[in-house]
Design a protein around this nucleic acid. Structure first.
Lengths: 138, 138
DNA sequence: GTACTTGCAAATTGTTTGCAGACAC
DNA sequence: GTGTCTGCAAACAATTTGCAAGTAC
């Protein structure tokens, strides 16, 4: 899912069934050049560095679209902001409550065992694990 | 931590080091009469049923205070609203994305194994597990 | 009596929406 | 050409804050 070049970004969008536009390419390049965890406003700021006239609304709308198409995953680590994770394979997170930083956990660091008894008529969507940490000694 | 009566609520607040007021008693009774998962506005609506002139701001401020004193736990299941959990012992959650309902998971349903390698200078605060489900067949 | 709380309404913040013009195909 | 996308600014909803009046002890 890495897309360093514009062509990679275009391929990635096409594969996901997302109509290609200039703005979406810019946003895809920010997200998929490397695994990142960014808030919508951070993404907007980064995109503006290379494409100054992308509007905030477009970034928000595009992120919603990308989420629906499973190109990114929304993380609710903090009620103040949604963090977008460009890695969509199942994995867990470490969240520093003081710095706001989000880090992926390696698969061997933590493991979830067992499956909950689901009520009838519902199906599992995903399992979210967030390990919250603080800087030592406040 | 159950507090069905006013006296129980007062004792609970005193024990937590929270100065007792009429409004806090009402809010405590809503939260601690039984294990609940409620949003701030749901709590406000419930409190108003028996104490009509408690303001929304007081409910929000009190919930923040209760959180600091570890009388309740904040759950970030959905970016739109904070859900308050009146059970503060460690446990995990099942969240129905369609209905918004939150349910506690029993300790034998799911288990987390292993501990992440923490960066130097940080300490573990808590581990949050949220199992997200959807109603079958959209 | 004093300090802390409350209620109200206004402010704040992250996110969404409506609409006219612009772009992809 | 046609339908979708974008930008702008206004709308929104959940939460917070400032300040004068009320309450617990």
């Amino acid at each position: 899912m890495n897309a360093y070049t514009t062509d990679d970004a275009i391929a990635c969008l096409r594969k996901a069934g997302v109509p290609v536009t200039q703005q979406r390419i810019e946003i895809a390049r920010v997200l998929f050049s490397a695994p990142v965890h960014m808030s919508a406003d951070q993404i907007w700021a980064t995109v503006k560095a290379t494409a100054p006239d992308v509007s905030r609304a477009t970034v928000y709308n595009t992120l919603r679209l990308f989420t629906e198409k499973h190109l990114v995953r929304e993380l609710f680590v903090d009620p103040q902001r949604i963090v977008y994770d460009s890695t969509t394979t199942p994995h867990f997170h470490l969240y520093n409550m003081d710095t706001g930083e989000v880090r992926d956990l390696a698969a061997d660091e933590i493991e979830v065992i067992g499956a909950p008894r689901l009520p009838a008529g519902v199906e599992l969507e995903e399992v979210d694990v967030i390990v919250r940490v603080r800087n030592r000694s406040a």
